[in-house]
């Protein structure tokens, strides 16, 4: 399935799905992020969703109409035709099983196709993407309690809560976590994938237009979970290169010891970013190994019992040792 056709389909179908949303809350339409996918992966997700929904509406809408019409039509006051003993019809039963079966078969076919298209480990849809000819940008993602650490092994830099990637390049993400499971998600951009301690998961996306998105955790991981956001900035290649150079010049180095301080439970309200040069080459592996050896970063009692005070502290406290 080639991408341009897909986008056309999405453009055509989008208003259909958006209509009720518009009616209900026109003012917040802009906030309904999933109706504005960016990039091929999210585009494919939207595309498949729309086809699936429309296929299902083929059966849902008539059934809904019947649900409304039958009780009205056959209300006792209307004296419509009444057949008290009619309780079986082979034709209707065959249709009742057959039509859903046909529709479900089609949906199954479509959804399996879709699964391969957006498989986060190796999205089929990115195989022929414009950026596929260039080497991918590799980013290692470590979810701590409750911040995101992004390590760029090829560039030798690291950031907190700030994912910067060049446009027109495929981005490969490798994820793990320190002590709790988190869900990595950038709506409109990348599929949701869990970041899990002692395990490694992956995600991938490519965006061709510079833009800024918000990402966050989707899997509850404790008291600071609601604040666990990060910004995703897609910038032109040249800007990315100069940004990398500026971070490389940063004197803060992300050794494993420095990381252990960062990984202490911290609420980074407002997702204030921090930048590091020369991260430990094997930081990702060391975090995974530590998790496998049973290292956890326990949340101090003060955070759990009186987190209201602490989230305030967290907002003022430096997000990272600088």
């Amino acid at each position: 399935m080639n991408p341009p056709k897909q986008r056309r389909a999405s453009l055509l179908l989008k208003p259909l799905l958006a209509l009720p949303a518009l009616l209900l809350s026109g003012c917040t339409m802009a906030g309904i992020r999933l109706f504005h996918p960016a990039g091929l992966v999210a585009g494919a997700e939207m595309h498949y969703t729309l086809i699936l929904v429309i296929t299902m509406l083929i059966i849902i809408v008539p059934t809904l109409l019947m649900t409304i019409i039958f009780p009205l039509r056959y209300h006792h006051s209307r004296n419509a035709k009444y057949t008290p003993d009619w309780h079986f019809s082979l034709t209707i039963e065959l249709l009742a099983w057959g039509i859903p079966f046909a529709i479900v078969a089609f949906l199954c076919y479509l959804t399996i196709q879709g699964v391969y298209a957006v498989n986060p480990w190796a999205p089929g849809i990115l195989a022929n993407a414009p950026g596929a000819r260039q080497p991918p940008i590799n980013v290692e993602v470590i979810a701590t309690d409750w911040q995101w650490v992004f390590v760029y092994p090829d560039q030798g830099i690291a950031t907190i809560d700030d994912l910067v990637v060049p446009s027109g390049r495929v981005v490969h993400l490798q994820m793990t976590a320190t002590s709790n499971m988190n869900g990595f998600y950038i709506p409109q951009v990348a599929p949701m994938v869990d970041a899990m301690p002692a395990m490694e998961s992956r995600d991938a996306f490519e965006l061709d237009q510079p833009a800024t998105y918000t990402g966050f955790s989707t899997d509850f991981s404790g008291a600071g979970f609601s604040w666990m956001q990060f910004s995703t900035r897609v910038v032109p290649q040249a800007e990315f290169d100069s940004w990398v150079a500026s971070v490389q010049a940063n004197p803060n180095q992300l050794t494993y010891a420095a990381f252990q301080k960062i990984a202490q439970p911290t609420v980074n309200a407002g997702a204030k970013p921090a930048y590091f040069s020369a991260p430990d080459k094997n930081l990702f592996g060391e975090v995974m190994t530590a998790a496998m050896q049973g290292v956890v970063y326990p949340v101090p009692d003060s955070f759990t019992k009186r987190v209201s005070d602490n989230s305030a502290q967290g907002a003022q406290a430096p997000a990272s040792p600088q």
């Binding site: 395990m199 998961s201 592996g285 995974m288 190994t289």
Partner: peptide, 9 residues
Amino acid sequence: RTMPMDGML
């Protein structure tokens, strides 16, 4: 997929 034992670790 998530536990590449023989690799990096």
